[in-house]
Design a protein around this nucleic acid. Sequence first.
DNA 1: CCGTATCCTACAGGATACTG
DNA 2: CAGTATCCTGTAGGATACGG
Lengths: 127, 127
Amino acid sequence: MTRTVPAPLPPDLFDPDCPVPTVPVLGGKKWAWRILRCLEGGPRRFSELRVPLVGITAKVLTESLRSMEQDGVLERTEFAENPPRVEYALTPLGRTLLGPMDAVCDWSRANLAELLAAREAFELAER
Amino acid sequence: MTRTVPAPLPPDLFDPDCPVPTVPVLGGKKWAWRILRCLEGGPRRFSELRVPLVGITAKVLTESLRSMEQDGVLERTEFAENPPRVEYALTPLGRTLLGPMDAVCDWSRANLAELLAAREAFELAER
DNA sequence: CCGTATCCTACAGGATACTG
DNA sequence: CAGTATCCTGTAGGATACGG
């Protein structure tokens, strides 16, 4: 009788048609998660978002917000005032993302030290 | 008395020195999460990984594996055989990543339809 | 205040060929 | 089998200037 080997990995383990890997909100965008976090406590204005998002340019913030709006995780509201006012708020869909996002953030906080230590050890081992 | 407004976002909401955003395993790498998933069931060989990771080149797979090894989430073991054999396996640290990863994947599965619908609605609204 | 319009750069990722 | 070595390209992201 042959020895039991682990099942080989199926070639179709990942659906090539699945658009999830390309969903920007899932990591493709540098700022998306932070923006989500900024909106956690309620709607925020464009200029308000620029404060904690240190270094972001208007162009990139606009692009990020548009992309997330397109994905339905946030909503853009323009008020017909002068000077103009625009508010961004999480949609219910966007709000459901906070849970998984927290899971990842918690992991980072809990394991950052170990990860950095691993990096150092790796560099030492290279010489 | 003034009306209560939401607290302004603090400028230091995100630590500029925090290396988490640059941690490749957290989304910066296109293939990292899939590789993690491939190793979930036990150690795998280089060529074995190439099967489900359709379209990945040897160079990119090597780079991804090295980067993840450096971060301490997987371990590379070289056997002194001929032909050569190399196995990649999750470390305990890497295994702790599976939980948060599942949370995100579950979210994707549960909300993909809604997200795609939002994209379509957005495109329609643009015209 | 809230963007848009250009231009530019860095780097992840890929194509192809070759090697211990 | 498990990679390196080159070369190349696409695009996210940034700098700067201007517009409604």
